[in-house]
Nucleic acid binder design. Structure first.
Lengths: 226, 226, 226, 226
DNA sequence: TGGTAAACGAGACGGTACGTCGAGTCTTCTT
DNA sequence: AAGAAGACTCGACGTACCGTCTCGTTTACCA
């Protein structure tokens, strides 16, 4: 009766913060050392100097620990909003370049791949992963695009969810499948192409592909899609 | 010296074709029944009426078996070239719609996800998976785009690798991350947006988004990005 | 330094007594059912309702389990000392007859043979087997012989270790090699012959072999060495 | 009908003698190198440059191969009869000392132990082993004892089978159980004690144990039963 | 401020699957 | 027809981790 909790649910108030941190640190370290597949709960517990039960008490699976560890380590939850310089192309380039930079960083790349992979087999983890890690970035980009739409830099009828996917989809595809290297120039090219699709109609002659101009800087043209 | 093989390598000529087929069939069935994560080599062997060693003799891992099974089952190796009706939009819609249809088919969806996931942890498997399953489709699309480029339907300077990613990247992103449902209308929208990016410049007034016309049929407009 | 144990050694205090007993019982049962050669650790674990690891944690081999099971079952560790009626021949007959009786009992015979055989291949097991099972009996017999020596029933200079072997060696030989059946009469004969070797010198005419008397009762004379 | 052999029985006439020898040699070598327990049919076949089937065609088990190999190697089948110098003690000492020497020779000790052990689990092998290897020696000894009996060196009523066991049993016991080292002095002691049991009665005073004389030489007295 | 209940470290437990080994059988090709 | 070679099915091996379950031992609240 009353506020009696389920007997099995642990009391977060009594949780040992020290253990929590040790577990998360151990998880991050071990993913880096042996990869996700060879990572074991037992090894995390041993490295953290913690009983296995303490892990199972607070997390439901190896994936959940790694997700938390990744979130804690990557400082997720901070401000994900894009800069708004008034120039949508410039701002998108900044965000796609930053994304490429992250994906090239092993500390980021490895757990991200692992979590993406694990998400294919664990819908609950997938939801948490997308909501905690990816959605904020996608939403921030969408928000910036909405601003551009109001400013007339993006056509009115555009579906902004698809617009976001037009930007991140190609990166994601190339990253996961390793079909070609991820470079900043590639990020620029994707922004360039995407904005052609999203932008409003233009005066005749203004949209000649490859015409010199800020939309198609040399770097993007040349090495863009190596 | 000469053609001497490693003493440990089994001789493919003496391979039992019956066992090979039974293993592949068992693998396909079991992935469908219990999913990839709960799939075990032991279960495959049991179902196939085969010794475990026979699996380990010819495949290096569970993933390798599933890949082979998937290739055999999906009839990969067939003709992957796109139709060429002369209308690039129509042809791309056909291929993206077909892709969406496949991804919605559990028999295709499940092993594809599993192999994509497993590829993140096994570079060798990744290579084989991409080369055997994905590359042919991407290359075929690229080839069709090259034709369109010659026909003036796609701008001259476009990087066709990026173009292909502009088409498949969004689908792939949505499929793997399950951020929104994959529909035919979505496929149409992606084709529509992508072609705006890839197409040659047009006379003023001709490129108003959402203007009625084959590029933006009602279906695509409405449900495109649910 | 000090009492620190090897990190890998399990803590006997935390051992599950129930599991230990179940394993030992299963081992005894199974040796009886399928014999030692066809006995498997897996079967013991299954029969005992126990994980294989629990067996490997506490025993080093199949042989070690069977030895423990045999010791537990045969109630080894009890009092092995011989009766001392003052008549050495009577006492030795009792013990050799009892030995023959045991060796004819399948529950005793089978594991004994198995452990003897296994001991030939595993010196550590051999040591434990001899110390735990055989030595007590040999020592007890030796002790009784020492008493007889003091009482003048056994000659002074006799090496009692050899004396013991003179008694048990023939039984053991016949038992292991199955060259002839093991009978009580045989046991009596062996005692008779051995005591002739061990006894003090006697008055002339007193030691005619086959002379009627307690040393050579009819039974022993006739079927003794069939 | 008629003389048609069972289809499965191979024709000894067509047997490849070269292979037979190679197998036997390989078996002897390998028992010496890795011991019987770790000896495998596969290894024998590989070492002999022979197909496994060729082994299974002609022998029923690993033990059977080793038995044949041992017989061939030890030159069994030769003359096993004892010398007859007229002095039974001298002759028995020679044979027991020779036995001790053999048992101390690893080439003899290892396969003998293995075959004895294996015999506990394989009655068919046991029979062959005893008949081919042991029986001849035991019979030869028995024969010599029969001679001694006729010569009055052994009492009339003695059961010669038991007599033989009185001689070899102690050696066998000590050898298999490794309760004490096997030495020549020990062999002498056993002969000494056994002959006291077997010999005819003697004039009073003649049989004082430890009395100086050929029956109890210093060596035997001292180290006999270390 | 001492009692008590929770979380904790440790690690044994019943299990499942691993990847390997060898047994004995079954081709297939060679001598 | 027997043999060399070796792939096959089968069963067990001993190991690694899983997730659960005791064990004492802190630790933090509250009586």
């Amino acid at each position: 009766m009353g506020t009696m909790r389920d007997a099995k649910t642990p009391d977060p108030a009594r949780r040992n913060e020290r253990s929590r941190e040790a577990i998360l640190n151990a998880a991050v370290e071990l993913v880096g050392e042996v990869g996700y597949a060879r990572l074991t709960v037992e090894a995390i517990a041993a490295r953290a100097g913690v009983g296995k039960q303490t892990i199972y008490r607070w997390w439901s699976s190896k994936g959940a620990v790694v997700l938390d560890a990744f979130i804690a380590w990557s400082g997720a939850g901070g401000d994900t909003s894009l800069p708004d310089t008034g120039d949508i192309e410039k701002d998108l380039r900044a965000v796609l370049r930053a994304t490429v930079a992250e994906l090239r960083e092993p500390r980021f790349d490895l757990p991200s791949r692992a979590l993406t992979a694990e998400s294919q087999m664990d819908p609950e983890l997938a939801k948490q992963f997308v909501d905690a890690v990816l959605r904020p970035h996608l939403e921030a980009t969408k928000e910036r695009l909405r601003g551009a739409q109001k400013a007339g830099q993006v056509a009115k009828g555009i579906d902004l969810d698809v617009a976001v996917e037009l930007l991140f989809g190609p990166l994601y595809h190339r990253w996961l499948l390793r079909t070609a290297p991820l470079t900043e120039a590639y990020a620029d090219t994707v922004v360039d192409y995407a904005l052609r699709a999203l932008g409003p109609s233009e005066p005749a002659g203004a949209r000649t592909p490859n015409a010199p101009g800020k939309r198609a800087p040399k770097g993007a043209r040349k090495g863009g899609a190596a």
